[in-house]
Structures are given as C-alpha cells and as structure tokens.
Design a protein around this nucleic acid. Sequence first.
DNA 1: ATGAATGAAAG
DNA 2: CTTTCATTCAT
Length: 552
Amino acid sequence: MPAIRAHDIYPNDVEDDDGMPPLVDNPNTSMSYTFFTDMTPITAFSADPTALCENAWDHSTSTSLVEFTDSPDCPTTQIADRVSHGKKRDASYIPRPPNAFILFRSSFIRSQQVPEKVEGNHSTLSKIIGKYWKTLPREEREVWEAKALVAQAEHRKRYPDWRFRPGANALAKLKVKDGPGIANRKRSTSTKKGRGNAESKKKNKSKDERCSMIADLLVEGKTGAELESALRNWENGISKEVEVGKGAVGLQGEPNHEGGDQGNWSEAFPTTNHFQMESVQFLPDLYDPGLGTQVNTDGLDHLATSQPRCKTPHDDRFKVPLTAMFRRSLSAPARRFASPADVLGHSGNSSLTDVFSDTASSPPSVCTPSVFPSEQYEDPSVAVYGDSMGHLSPLVLPSGLGDDSPARWNDPYNLLGAQSPVGSLSDCPALSYGHSPSVSPVDVSFGNYTFPSPTLAALTATKPENISAGLDYPISYDNQCYSSYSALKGWSDGQCASFDTSPEGFVPQVFVNQYASAPAIYEWSPLDDTIRAGHAPQLHNTFESNYNDFRF
DNA sequence: ATGAATGAAAG
DNA sequence: CTTTCATTCAT
C-alpha cells in the first residue's frame, strides 16, 4: 500500500514548509470520517480547565497535573526566567521540552536518593540514572513518558510557534568563537587525558562498575545512608551475597552488573523495590484492572498483596513507547475535539441515532458524529492533554457521570490525580469505554442484558485470522481509505471494509474506543475471543435494530 | 531513506 | 561531561 503523504491529507498546508504538521490541522469541519483504532493511548480530562496549571512541563517551576516536584505552587514562570544550570541565554530563549528520561533524571536528582557523598558529579549521576532508567518496569517508564507527553503538549500550547532548531545555537557560538561550527559538528570526543592507554581504561571500567553497582542498589531500594553503606561494603570487597545471606531482604538474585538485556519486566518487578516517586505510587495496573482499584491517597491496600504487580504480557506489542504511540499517523485525517461540556451535555440520553446522524441510508461509508457541535472542536481551553503533535485528546465520557466526576475512566495514568475511583460497577456507564491496551473493568449493559467486559487479550490480540486481512481497522476520510499507524501488531495498513451482519455466534460486545476521534464501535466474540470493528453506519444499523435503547 | 548532530536538566 | 530521547540536519 502506498504511503499517504501528509499533504495528501492536508491540501491546505502546502505553504507550511516547516515539515511539521499544522498546529491546528484542517479546520475544515465538514470532514466526515469513520473512526480510528489506534490514535492516542492516553486521555485525560478535566471538567474544570481552570484547575489546570500551565507549564507542567516546566517541572522546576510547577507541579501542574503532574507532580514532578515538591513545590506545590503553580506559577506561570516564563521560560526565559529559568536559568538552566548557569548557562547564560538570551531572555527570549525557549528550551526544548524535556523528554521522559530528562524528567525522570530531574526528579531523581531532586529526590536526593544518592547522597552527595556517594556521587555529586552530574556526569556520573547521569550514568547511574541511565542505568537505573533501563531497569524501570515498563509501567513506571510509561508514567514518565506520559509526563513527557504532557510537557510536550503544554510546551506546544505555550509556544505554538516554537520549533526545535538544532544548530541555530551553534551558529551563534561560531560567531563568538572560532570553535567548531555547523560545518564541523561533532560531539567532542574527550580529547583530554589519554583514554587509549590501558591504565585509564581500567579506571574507566571500575568507575563504570561503580555506577552499575549504585544503580543496582537503587533497584534494590537502597537509598540515602543505606545506599552509602551498602556501597562502602561493596567497595571494601565485602560480597553482596554475604550481606544478603545474613538474611535481610529476600532479593531474588544478583543484579546484572554487566548491564545485559533485562527484557523480562515481570521478573524484576514484583521483587525489586524501585524507589517510589510520588506520581508512580498509585498507578492502576493497566494490564489487570481487577488489581488496580486503587488511585487513592490512603496509601493502603494496593500493591500490598502477594499478587504480582505486573502482569505485562511479554510481547513486542507492549514495548511500543507511549511517546511513539502518540505519534499521529501521517495518513490520519485531522482530528477534531469535543469539549467536555459537549460530551457531558449530550451524555446520558443520546441515542445512537443522535450520535451518528447520517447513517440512515446504506451504505454510507462514513458517518458524522453530529452530537458534538463542530465549532467546539479543537478548543484548547477545554480539552486538556494532547499527543506529541499537540493534538488534544478527544473525549468520550461515560454517561451517568457528573461534571464533578474525576476523569477516572479516561485517565488511566491518573494524571489528574483523581482522589478516588469513579464509583463501582453499579455506577458504571452503560457502555464500557475501553481503550487499548487498558480496559475499563466494567461490564456492558444493553437493556436487560449485561455483557462481560472485553478481555485485554481480545483488545490487544493480533489481528485475528478470521478478520479479513487489513480490512477491519480502517481510517476513512472523505470516502477514501487510508492505512494507519498502529501500535498494535498487525492492525495497521487497513483498508476500508464493513460488516453487514454479525456472523453466527458473534456477540455484539460493544465498547467505545475513547482514543478514536469519533466513537468507534467494536464487536467482540466470546466464542473465539476475537474483536471486530467496522464502519459505524453498518454497525449502527446492526445495533439500532438490535438495541434500540442503546445509550451513550 | 538514514545516520549524525543537537539539546532538553544539572552542577 | 554524561545520560536517553525527540527532533532536525545533512548526506
């Protein structure tokens, strides 16, 4: 399938020669579409946008929704005011948004887990933190990726015109000094000290081993004075086995000093004791909703059981970083967004017909979610989080939730810091607002019948054989079909297809993909645990006849 | 296309 | 100087 270029999708962007997608792409709201299955994996929402803090990315001055720091204030400090490690910069200079690792590193440094005495050099600290970072379970790493996405979105919102221009600074330097300019850009290759000779190599190795040791101790949960003494023991040649043998903590084994590939998260996760930064503590277990009833501040209950915290399947599909998952497909049509007010205003009693207005004739290949006033779309003052391209999240709220409800269901990473879960199963929406790979642990009710919630396996399964290859997860735009990027293996490169009827034994387990720009409806068969999705119109026809009281 | 370079934090 | 990651530059 030929790649769809951005300009094929954004015909109006031809003057936009910066190579970036438009900040507000395709304001033409007459566009119609079906759905995505693979857009944004994180959605967060606040009914009170004023509660938001600008500058969440700027963790040194703000905590915003993301608790980067211990400082609770939420100032709107200008970037230029921020003096970054003594580097003198122009007052108008806008730094890059931090990535996940940089955020993690900053938080780590601030948390002072490694005493100054143990290591005060930031270059060395970077090494240690880098090693430690590599041991983070995916769940924890995702938290930082999520923060980075927030930082990126807010940075973009604050500085809409900012672009990363590598070398622009080097050019300025070139003016001042005759040093290496862009003509000869190369990372400085430590010219000092003979690194070639055997002695310095040996020294480097022992230094590196020390870093590895510190990282290992951190993984074991040792910090502060404990870390210091453990390290001293190690440096004095006291083997760690002896110390463990003395019988303190039941560690599972010798940490891997040579920094091999750890790969298997669940092996390391349940037994290791990563230091807990506040924002990491109460994460729901996205891969086993049944375990994750926490999101509380009481500090009790969760993670306290002997059950493994991590049930992550060992599967390549789950190694896609959030930041990558957020990347918008070039072939994706422009996204439009409904304000929370719109959604709330229409939730509760809207029938499927209300939502999909143009589905009467058959078979229209697209439908328009008429329930959301188009003029409300892409309103950054009401939508909150966005993807890496600055596109804010589409929101689909469950019915039955009030304006003051914490956005629990749409906030799997609890970026909003909801104080409590939204109700229990009895408070559940009529639909399961599932998202991949996290699934809301709710059943789905239609009329008097309650369907079980879809399984994670079903949601994340490799495209089932019995679904026409590439045909069932399409993106449709202006009656044309485009392939789409998908974080889920084998679910991309779709063409348009539709379901006319459900096959025998196919229970219409319906849920809405909250990451879709329009409600995407899926069917799930408990018989063979497959999922299928189709054009809303066709599904609409099916479901309207079967479930007239279908509610959003 | 793809690898190299840059810079985000920190002192 | 050093880390990882995202983004752009250069070939």
